[in-house]
Design a protein around this nucleic acid. Structure first.
Lengths: 201, 201
DNA sequence: GAACCTCTGTACCGATCGGTACAGTAACCC
DNA sequence: GGGTTACTGTACCGATCGGTACAGAGGTTC
């Protein structure tokens, strides 16, 4: 009785990942609800039978896409937390990590930010939990900085939401090979945001 | 040969607007593609015949929703430009105008920001043109401020995108009657952003 | 070469999609 | 009161929706 996932593992997993990536691109263009299974089949050059052999359902595909991004994001959070440094340094680093992901997986991020409300049941609560971890990390850094008098005192939640908005929104215009690199944009954002929090207003 | 639009004008227009508002709420919950005509009929307590008497098509409904928001936004831009003042003052005022709209029309804004890619043909180009006016206004204020040495020198486009992201993103969490008022959040955002641009980095 | 197993295309399912046709009703005009 | 007009519910359209059943293809293992 060999592990079935181990046997199929050879090509199956790679093939599945390719399908997820391609489908992310299609979803990013047409939206999750706006894209039909037939369209996915064509983009992946596969019949329905073959497609459903790799994905369990349309929603499972969406889950796979969002999971990929969230894994990267939370890994980035861990790296930043492990690196230490001042609050400003950690915030700079987190911004660079995040925009880096955004440039590496533009389609996946697009799908995540646009279609996460389509997740249902357990998948939805899971997602919200992981997103909360990320957002709390941002807010925590800000809170630390205020406590250490590194930042001026203001509502850390609003400041965190401002930071998140600034960075999240970049998924609409920041592209690999585009006019700006993720590193440059992250630096510009950090300059504005951190200086804005440093001054005693 | 009386003007037909004038004749129906009495109740028709008000009724239509009510339908647009209700539908915006439904779209905001389920997405444009995710919401069926049947669902809209139920929400509006109307049969298909009645519904289509007021809206021409599903897409026309989407256009009406986005137009409403864009009209408000561009009117806000005009008010700010007419008011004059320093770049910082104008930027503060524009932020307050924008978040005010966001709180007054949370559902409409949600639909606009999420579903504008679903617009097709002439509708799409129209929308992009009007959005460009808004974004250029932001960028123009920043450019003015830099030219007048009011702000430090940086890429005005990136700064504008940072500002837009900060404010746009609020559609996800800023709600009428919620924890924060649009005015307070706009002030917090302006404090961060303007100080961030004022300091020499 | 027989048994097995992963992979894939085709045919098909009931449900729902956005939209139309049309008859009927009610209110207003002269 | 006869005619016109605005409004609305019902029935219906072809197309597409997400998903399943299944037979066969092709390769691997004894």
């Amino acid at each position: 009785m060999p592990d079935p996932t181990a046997r199929r593992g050879a090509n199956w997993e790679a093939r599945r990942q390719k399908i997820i990536d391609t489908s992310a691109r299609v979803f990013a263009q047409g939206g999750y609800h706006g894209t039909g299974i037939a369209e996915l089949c064509e983009a992946n050059d596969l019949g329905k039978g073959a497609l459903y052999h790799y994905i369990g359902s349309k929603e499972e595909l969406l889950v796979a896409i969002t999971d990929l991004v969230m894994n990267e994001v939370l890994a980035g959070v861990d790296r930043v937390m492990a690196a230490g440094g001042s609050s400003a340094q950690r915030l700079r680093m987190l911004g660079a990590e995040y925009l880096g992901i955004l440039v590496r997986y533009p389609d996946h991020v697009w799908v995540l930010l646009h279609e996460f409300p389509a997740l249902t049941g357990e998948r939805a609560t899971d997602f919200h939990k992981r997103r909360h971890v990320f957002e709390s990390a941002v807010e925590g850094i800000l809170r630390d900085g205020m406590r250490a008098k590194e930042f001026r005192k203001t509502d850390p939640r609003i400041a965190a939401l401002a930071w998140l908005g600034m960075h999240n929104h970049a998924y609409l215009w920041l592209r690999p090979g585009g006019k700006w690199s993720a590193r440059d944009v992250a630096a510009s954002f950090a300059d504005i945001f951190i200086e804005g929090l440093t001054r005693s207003a």
